[in-house]
């Protein structure tokens, strides 16, 4: 796999750290794993840490937007943090940050959701 994912749970918040490359191939597995976390552990919010994500294409935008909508149904939120310039370019092009909040690091993202870290 070119993508590795790390899931850490704090209360009803899921911290998801991605490392490597997120394309269509990886997006299929990410979607399944992320949805399982939401369902099994009654997750309401997700903090998506993209510090070590080096490559992403439109498939990544799709899977992130898909989970944003899913969490919104649960009255939850998604916060993205620590993004590199290449990935940021795609978010800017798609206007994703008009709807999804951005924080500079995981600590601030946790604080913004009311979880002390």
């Amino acid at each position: 796999m070119n993508l590795s994912m790390q899931f850490v749970r704090m209360e009803n918040v899921l911290v998801l750290r991605l490392e490597g490359e997120l394309d269509h191939h990886a997006a299929i597995e990410l979607r399944a794993a992320w949805q399982e976390q939401i369902r099994v552990h009654k997750i309401q919010h997700t903090i998506l840490n993209l510090e070590n994500l080096h490559f992403m294409d439109s498939s990544g935008l799709g899977v992130i937007l898909g989970r944003y909508k899913e969490l919104k149904q649960l009255n939850g939120e998604m916060v993205i943090c620590s993004i590199n310039p290449a990935v940021r370019r795609l978010f800017d092009m798609s206007g994703l940050f008009k709807i999804v909040r951005y924080e500079s690091n995981e600590h601030f993202a946790l604080l913004s959701l009311g979880v002390a870290s």
């Binding site: 979607r31 294409d57 937007l65 798609s94």
Partner: peptide, 21 residues
């Protein structure tokens, strides 16, 4: 931009826009 024929597959309709950019 944002047109996709497969929204059910979680496509965002950004592929050609990215290529042109």
């Amino acid at each position: 931009p944002l047109y996709t024929s497969k929204p059910e597959l979680e496509r965002s309709g950004m592929g050609f826009t990215i290529m042109e950019n």
